[in-house]
Design a binder for these strands. Structure first.
Lengths: 199, 199
DNA sequence: ATATTTTAATAGGGATCACTATTTTAATGG
DNA sequence: CCATTAAAATAGTGATCCCTATTAAAATAT
């Protein structure tokens, strides 16, 4: 018999490493140690399984990250910790590199439009979460009222996506964090040294 | 008969939109108006065709972009124009969104490792080009000698990758350029307004 | 015009794709 | 112990994957 959460965990890992189109149902059933009919009776279809595996994984990470973001830390501190946590997630030694959502299903066959739309919606949601935190910072006087919080969120969203891509290409933890340190110097009103060197 | 360059252009466009794994040889032969044996006699294999289509496309864009970068404009100006040019490339109305290289083959099936490695090498090369320009800026006194040019290049590389991802998700030209404007405020020694709003 | 070479099209090979109908096994109930 | 239900495995669906052997057409040569 198959424990549902164990199956989702195994599936998520496969999808994470190989992408939606790069993972076959044969890969999935083999890794879960089940037969094809069990996959379909338990999860519905490959697309449904992907959806559930993403939800499952996001739920696990989200509690810690949203705790960081929704804490009453100063917004700049919260953002820093948030980004560092993502850099750590991109480079876990026992997990596939990169982020499961940030750089998933960007290019895709016509038949997988719905899967692409779903992952895009997840990315948009996470940027809206970031924007909401920045809006709160405006309300609380931590950011100037005229701040373009939407663009600011999309800027750090781009950093998150870039980190995921570079992690996929083999970048290590400290390299990503050096990159974050530069991105943080773009924070509105931040004074910076003239070097750009974090050492 | 098939003109080689026309075939590469058509292939590049398909790979660009659907990715390597999302594009089948049947898609390619149909779009080029040829039969399968012609594809293999002309290009060798699907992987070889992808390689050649990438080279073909890169060669076309590279002359303009490397001209911007290697000009004797101040490095900050050159970088700005370079990034804007990429934003334009990510959002051409008659072309697929995003960049053909920046966010390609990040996740992949085991059997496509070599394709992934090739695209990763192209990304690394373009970041090295950026780093080389920054190193020149250090030599010419435009950047402090202690500048971490490698991280700076990878930071703007991340911006380029993030822009490509967001373009794939439907972001328009001006949205990407607003994002660039924030990224440019991270330039070493740059003073910024306290707003983050480019209007 | 016939023979030869070159080029293109058809047809198909072996494997794998996502997914199921059917059978077999196992568990439960009387 | 047998009948019935529930679970799991086998086997196989048609479609599509990348790629080629073979046949048909066209171009060149004698």
């Amino acid at each position: 018999m198959l424990d549902r959460d164990v199956g989702l965990d195994i599936s998520a890992r496969l999808f994470w490493e190989r992408g939606y189109e790069g993972t076959s149902t044969a890969d999935l059933t083999k890794a879960m140690g089940i037969n094809p009919p069990t996959l379909y009776s338990t999860f519905g279809s490959k697309e449904e399984l992907y959806r559930q595996a993403l939800d499952f994984s996001i739920a696990r990470e989200n509690s810690r990250r949203s705790k960081i973001l929704q804490s009453n830390l100063p917004v700049y501190e919260a953002l820093s910790l948030y980004l560092y946590d993502i850099a750590d997630g991109d480079t876990q030694p026992d997990k596939p590199p990169g982020c499961m959502v940030s750089t998933a299903v960007l290019q895709h066959a016509e038949e997988n439009v719905s899967v692409a739309r779903m992952t895009a919606a997840l990315r948009e949601a996470s940027m809206q979460t970031l924007k909401a935190r920045f809006d709160r910072a405006v309300v609380e006087g931590e950011l100037p009222v005229q701040t373009d919080t939407d663009t600011l969120a999309r800027f750090y969203g781009a950093i998150i996506q870039g980190m995921s891509a570079q992690a996929c290409d083999g970048a290590c933890n400290v390299r990503l964090k050096r990159l974050i340190d530069i991105a943080l110097t773009a924070w509105p009103g931040k004074l910076r040294s003239s070097t750009g060197n974090s050492d």
